[in-house]
């Protein structure tokens, strides 16, 4: 007798939708996913929305409004396993750049009637409001990693999502280090793997899309960046990307701010 299929729901907060689209982008696996789970709520794919509770909730986007806060608390209650996906949901996203600015001033400049705008002064990761069972990093996430997490949850095993440096992946695939061989500044040594170390394979330094690795040491890397001719402003900008508000990156950019 086939067991009841687990219900999976996808929720969105402040984000670009790119991460949830990775699920649709996983063409060759899509039928297998559809066969293994019941997609109960996925606005990007279907209008059909089934009521909770859900077995797995995938949450994309950062928490930026008081309404978001209420909604994420409700979602948490309705999901047995809550997985956040992408840099917005796990670190606040690129929109967290506003965390260093005065949001009221932005709303005054942008909106004709700023008094209708209800927003928090910071863009924050989901995990700062509710308990998260697993954080899947990346801007955007790697679709194969998403499948791996869903797969592991379904098969009750540990997901193979390592938290070590991008450097290790460079070495596993045989890429010649761009920082050592070409002097290109690279965030790989402080960034978590997940992308497959794509940028160094195309002669670019790592941009830090997957956020800080397990025990990052950005000050040590900055020492080297100075030797490579970068100044404090350059270093600050390097860390002010999609994961700017992840703690290790935030601290390093702030250390070089003034």
């Amino acid at each position: 007798m086939p067991a009841k299929k687990p219900k999976v729901a996808v929720f969105k907060f402040a984000s670009c939708d790119g991460c949830q689209l990775s699920l649709l982008d996983a063409e060759e696996h899509l039928l297998a996913v559809a066969g293994a789970v019941e997609i109960a709520n996925f606005a990007e794919a279907s209008r059909r929305m089934l009521k909770g509770p859900y077995d797995i909730g995938l949450v994309e986007g950062s928490i930026t409004t008081p309404h978001d806060v209420e909604r994420i608390r409700e979602i948490r209650k309705s999901c047995r396993v809550l997985i956040t996906i992408g840099a917005c949901a796990t670190a606040g996203g690129i929109q967290a750049l506003r965390n260093w600015k005065d949001v009221k001033e932005f709303t005054r400049l942008v909106y004709a009637s700023p008094e209708y705008i209800s927003t928090l002064d910071r863009s924050m990761p989901v995990g700062s409001y509710v308990h998260v069972d697993f954080e899947l990093r990346g801007c955007p996430i790697n679709k194969l990693q998403l499948l791996e997490v869903v797969n592991a949850a379904l098969n009750k095993r540990k997901p193979n999502i390592p938290a070590h440096s991008v450097c290790m992946e460079c070495k596993l695939r045989g890429t010649v280090c761009v920082m050592v061989a070409k002097g290109i500044p690279c965030l790989g040594p402080v960034t978590q793997v997940g992308c497959g170390a794509i940028c160094p394979a195309f002669d670019r330094g790592c941009y830090g899309c997957f956020g800080p690795m397990e025990n990052p040491n950005p000050p040590a890397l900055s020492t080297r960046m100075f030797e490579l001719g970068k100044d404090r402003h350059d270093i600050m900008l390097l860390y002010r990307g999609f994961n700017a508000y992840a703690e290790a990156f935030r601290k390093e950019s702030e250390a070089h701010e003034k």
Binding site: N155, N160, S165, C167, M168, N215, N217
Partner: peptide, 23 residues
């Protein structure tokens, strides 16, 4: 030290490995 593991990856004597099960 960045704990980045490059030294162990390039070392010709380092022999450690792990196993990952996939389904």
């Amino acid at each position: 030290c960045l704990s980045c593991a490059n030294c162990t990856m390039v070392c010709p004597t380092c022999f450690c490995s792990t196993v990952e099960d996939v389904t």
